[in-house]
Nucleic acid binder design. Structure first.
Lengths: 206, 206
DNA sequence: ACCTGAACACCGTTCAAGT
DNA sequence: ACCTGAACACCGTTCAAGT
């Protein structure tokens, strides 16, 4: 498992090949099939291992001593940072039915319940927040994969901004493109979480 | 392009192989490389073709005669229905930099502007809403791929619910699992859009 | 029970050769 | 300029044979 994550971090999803993995473990190609059913299983297990470290310990200290809103922000940021460190997790999380997704659902649901949301509103809010987090991190991961370091990121964004500006006559897109290079992904991600929490609170209190 | 979409609809992302496509077009394997740079380009073009039909015509009649909130709901539902018809689009949209995503961004941004959102709040709200729509549809598409028809869907969800119920001691997950089989994806998706719009409005008016 | 590694049935992409 | 299709360099997975 550790070897799989190492390979994924080093070369992305395409870097995890049965050949590379078994070579790294100095074993025969067929050997892994005694431990996992196939490559899909391998990826799911690696993803679950990463997500577990974020959700895992937090679940016990959620008794209520902490502000659930703050805890939800922290959880979301935890996922964000994990994808920053392991971009391949972002793509993987969009593929159901993943145990890692289930784990996240449970934690988000519990915190929303602490916030006083119940019934249909709870499942609506939970799945919506989860979808946002997964969608945003997947987008971010895709961008990060294109530009691993800061210099490459700046170049990539400048190029993308030029492409945006050129593609549409829309002045709005133009404006968005100019702000693209300077914007902070992490801040924008958190702003989205806040829109969510505000919406949930507003809908709940009416 | 039409042939590519046909293959993708029939057999999913894995069904689109260079061999199957060129056989369908009764041409040589290398022929397509004179029209697209590779398979990635092919998938991006197919995705853009689908998204264009949703965003395309709407852009012109967005002058303001329509409630922007309603228009955003309609746009979101349009994406949802497109992925219902072509599940492979869902996965594809999570991969940047996709012209289709840019197209959606432009339309969402314009409608948010009609709603009176500007500056940093606009780019925050736009990217958040886009992330939600992409995340939710990707999740839905992944589920739909597992269960193409209604009978399979029910069976799949019942099985998933049992798995959920078994995995965690959490009573919340238990409760969510029981509601899983009956819930309407489309309704839940729209509920999420409403949480968003409510949050954006609430943050904007304070 | 677990491992080995050749073999199998696929891929996407390239490129000399044709029209 | 566009097409052809054999060839190349890969894949994931299987399975008879070993320990």
């Amino acid at each position: 498992m550790a070897a799989s994550i190492e390979l994924l971090d080093a070369a992305g999803e395409e870097g995890l090949t049965v050949r590379a993995l078994t070579a790294h473990l100095t074993t025969g190609r067929g050997a892994i099939y005694h431990h996992v059913t196939g490559k899909e299983d391998l990826l799911a297990a690696a993803t679950d291992a990463i997500i577990s470290t974020i959700v895992g310990t937090g679940a016990t200290r959620a008794a209520g001593e902490e502000d659930p809103r703050q805890a939800l922000r922290a959880l979301a940021l935890g996922v964000f940072d994990a994808i920053d460190a392991h971009p391949w997790v972002g793509v993987q999380l969009s593929r159901q039915p993943q145990p890692a997704v289930l784990r996240l659902w449970g934690r988000i649901g519990a915190l929303l319940q602490d916030l006083g949301v119940t019934g249909t509103a709870l499942s609506d809010a939970g799945s919506a927040l989860l979808s946002y987090v997964l969608g945003a991190t997947a987008q971010y991961a895709a961008g990060a994969r294109q530009a691993p370091d800061d210099a490459a990121r700046k170049e990539y964004l400048t190029e993308l901004a030029a492409e945006w500006a050129g593609s549409g006559a829309d002045p709005l897109v133009h404006q968005a493109a100019s702000g693209l290079v300077e914007h902070d992904d992490r801040e924008q991600f958190l702003a989205g979480v806040d829109i969510f929490l505000t919406g949930i609170t507003a809908l709940h209190s009416t």
